[in-house]
């Protein structure tokens, strides 16, 4: 019973926070300086780790698939298949998980620490809405920068996949890319970007909410960070399923 109440409280809290943030964004209450700062922190600084993770994923994917397809005379499909699967699933989901671990944890611990050290009250005392100062720029930066991170991560996985295919079955670049036109459409790119934007917003909202409800000192902040990251990962897979079914 307590678990259900707590889950409902969390869902309700995140929904209310989303509503407030959306209202502020529609009213145009965005500080450009804060937004740019967050775009660098959330996006630019996450590109290297996302590229590394997706490059390994691309290499592993090709390693498993290349010889199998080559033995059936379909080696030239490797690149196209990899891009298709990565656009629809791997890039948004893996980038989302990387962002949840790196950015989500950082946001929750920062806001949680601000809460327990009365900095959120200090913001309010200075006539500043914490949502305006902290949440709105982070959410917007998440929505804008997650697709940017995904582009870099996508390139990483593509070239790592090619390097593996070249090494394993001797494919030239033109052969590796030959099936892209027939297997991949603009719809796959759209789906990738839509998922990235939804995941970007979700990760930041969940992380901010986890920070706002943190209580009880350093241990409380640690617990809030864990809860935020776990909830983000579950939500990434749930939303991935929903978006795939809707856009499929």
């Amino acid at each position: 019973m307590r678990v259900i109440t707590s889950a409902l409280e969390t869902i309700g809290g995140i929904t209310i926070l989303s509503g407030r943030v959306a209202r502020m964004m529609l009213r145009g209450g965005i500080n450009l300086r804060l937004l740019l700062e967050q775009m660098v922190l959330l996006g630019v600084n996450s590109i290297p780790i996302a590229v590394i993770v997706l490059s390994f994923a691309g290499a592993v994917f090709t390693f498993v698939l290349a010889e199998e397809l080559a033995s059936r005379g379909a080696g030239s499909l490797v690149g196209g298949l990899q891009l298709l699967v990565f656009l629809q699933e791997m890039i948004p989901v893996f980038s989302g998980i990387v962002m949840a671990g790196k950015i989500g944890a950082a946001i929750t611990s920062e806001i949680g620490t601000m809460k327990i050290s009365e900095q959120l009250d200090a913001l309010r005392a200075l006539s500043t809405d914490p949502d305006w100062y902290l949440t709105v720029p982070r959410v917007l930066a998440g929505i804008i920068m997650m697709p940017v991170v995904a582009v870099f991560a996508g390139y990483g996985s593509w070239f790592a996949g090619y390097a593996m295919a070249h090494n394993q079955i001797g494919l030239r670049y033109s052969q590796f890319a030959s099936a892209v036109d027939s297997l991949v459409s603009m719809h796959d790119f759209r789906m990738c970007f839509v998922k990235c934007m939804i995941f970007g917003a979700t990760i930041v909202l969940v992380s901010c909410h986890s920070g706002y409800v943190a209580q009880g000192g350093a241990a409380g902040v640690g617990k809030a960070v864990t809860n935020g990251v776990v909830l983000n990962i579950v939500l990434i897979f749930l939303l991935d399923l929903l978006v795939t079914m809707v856009m499929g």
């Binding site: 009365e118 900095q119 200090a122």
Partner: peptide, 13 residues
């Protein structure tokens, strides 16, 4: 109004 908090509540960043 202005408020000086017990633990100052300065913005760390």
């Amino acid at each position: 109004m202005g408020m000086v908090f017990q633990h100052n509540a300065l913005f760390d960043g």
